[in-house]
């Protein structure tokens, strides 16, 4: 089952797309999954027939999507007996790349996306307080610390996102989990920069830990409040960074 002992496809990545299958949706699903590390560098994608069946799209749509992903350098296709499509995860993005991603959002876009993330994350934390299994709580406590234990943009981004996705998993909600994955892929990848400090990572880990503790103590109101505040602080940071992209002027807080 494992080609070379290394493996892996995360099945959530290949589950059917919700409404019809469009090329953009396939591209987005795969790009998101690579950004969050759900698909790792060098990982082989299932065959075109299998993948199109799993995603619920036609092979024509899938081929279009793969062609575009190849152009973006996210997927590499090798021919021959050991051929197939492989993930080419980009190295850690530079500050310029992350700033360019941020520039694609307007300030009001960021506010809107931040509101959605706060509502999903807040609700997930509230529900997790009454639904988390012992296994969920154990994993949440482990993941809460990770953002401070790792270094580098890619690892920090993935550690941060994994914690938030796990809160939704602990809420026993498939839909909230999918929403959280998608929002983390959109916003989570903007949060950490090569210039981010240990101190910032420590603060994030402390906030994660507080959320995890509230969930483990079954304090639904506190868990929700802490999760919302955490998202609001992050959104605030992103909006501040976005405003500064306009250059000139002085910083008004």
């Amino acid at each position: 089952m494992v080609d070379n002992g290394r493996v892996t496809a995360r099945t959530t990545v290949f589950s059917p797309l919700s409404s019809g299958g469009r090329t953009e949706a396939v591209i987005q699903r795969i790009t998101e999954s690579v950004a969050l590390g759900l698909l790792a560098d060098g990982e082989q994608l299932p065959s075109e027939t299998e993948l199109s069946a799993q995603l619920g799209v036609s092979t024509v749509t899938l081929r279009e999507a793969l062609a575009s992903l190849r152009e973006q350098g996210v997927v590499e296709t090798k021919r021959g007996r050991n051929g197939g499509s492989f993930i080419r995860a980009p190295g850690d993005p530079t500050k310029a790349v992350i700033r360019a991603r941020l520039a694609a959002f307007s300030v009001s876009d960021l506010r809107d996306a931040g509101d959605e993330l706060a509502s999903v994350s807040g609700m997930a934390a509230r529900l997790a307080s009454s639904r988390a299994s012992t296994d969920n709580v154990r994993r949440l406590l482990t993941l809460s610390e990770r953002v401070a234990a790792v270094s580098g943009v890619g690892e920090r981004t993935r550690a941060d996102s994994r914690f938030h996705i796990e809160v939704a998993v602990a809420a026993a909600s498939e839909r909230l989990t999918r929403a959280e994955v998608s929002l983390q892929a959109e916003l989570g990848v903007l949060l950490w920069l090569p210039t981010s400090t240990e101190q910032e990572a420590r603060e994030a880990a402390d906030q994660h830990r507080a959320i995890a503790m509230a969930i483990s103590r079954e304090d639904a109101d506190l868990a929700r409040q802490l999760a919302e505040q955490h998202v609001e602080r992050n959104t605030h940071k992103l909006i501040e960074a976005r405003i500064e992209l306009h250059g000139g002027g002085t910083r008004a807080r």
């Binding site: 089952m1 493996v7 892996t8 496809a9 099945t11 790792a40 799993q54 619920g56």
Partner: peptide, 16 residues
Amino acid sequence: QLTRDGRPKPLLLDID
């Protein structure tokens, strides 16, 4: 694991 179209296939997981 059964795929959504009802055929069994191996479940591939990252267990490293």
